[in-house]
């Protein structure tokens, strides 16, 4: 099933100079294996192309089932130069959650949903 990352993934982001630093967390090992295939550095670069020069580096953190992305040239010159409201890139992580990927149904069943449960 096609699912938007905001439904299933935890994320936190920050900065260093002009580089956005995003950690994306899967809920379990099976989901992490899907993330590794579906969320490549190339795909993340493509996702952020309208606002980042790149390149994108990816690190696999098996110990906490996370992918870390370093996106160069992403912060309009860095916090000390940027005119953006989000000059520190704190919300680059939530922007990554807009991405949609294909996850097998059985992995989604029983997974937590990270969207606010509107009644």
């Amino acid at each position: 099933m096609i699912v938007q990352l905001c439904e299933i993934a935890q994320v936190r982001s920050g900065d260093k100079g002009d580089c956005s630093d995003i950690s994306l967390f899967a809920q379990n090992k099976e989901m992490f294996e899907v993330f590794k295939v579906e969320i490549t550095a190339e795909k993340v670069f493509e996702h952020f192309k309208p606002m980042a020069a790149g390149p994108v580096q990816r690190f696999e953190m098996e110990n906490v089932l996370a992918l870390k992305f370093l996106i160069d040239g992403a912060l309009a010159g860095g916090a000390s130069q940027s005119l953006r409201s989000d000059n520190l890139g704190k919300c680059f992580g939530s922007n990554l959650l807009r991405m949609k990927i294909d996850v097998p149904d059985h992995i989604l069943q029983g997974a937590k949903c990270f969207r606010y449960p509107h009644s």
Binding site: K16, D21, S23, K68
Partner: peptide
């Protein structure tokens, strides 16, 4: 875990 990986490049 969110803080563990925060801004460590």
């Amino acid at each position: 875990k969110e803080q563990l990986l925060y801004e460590i490049h």
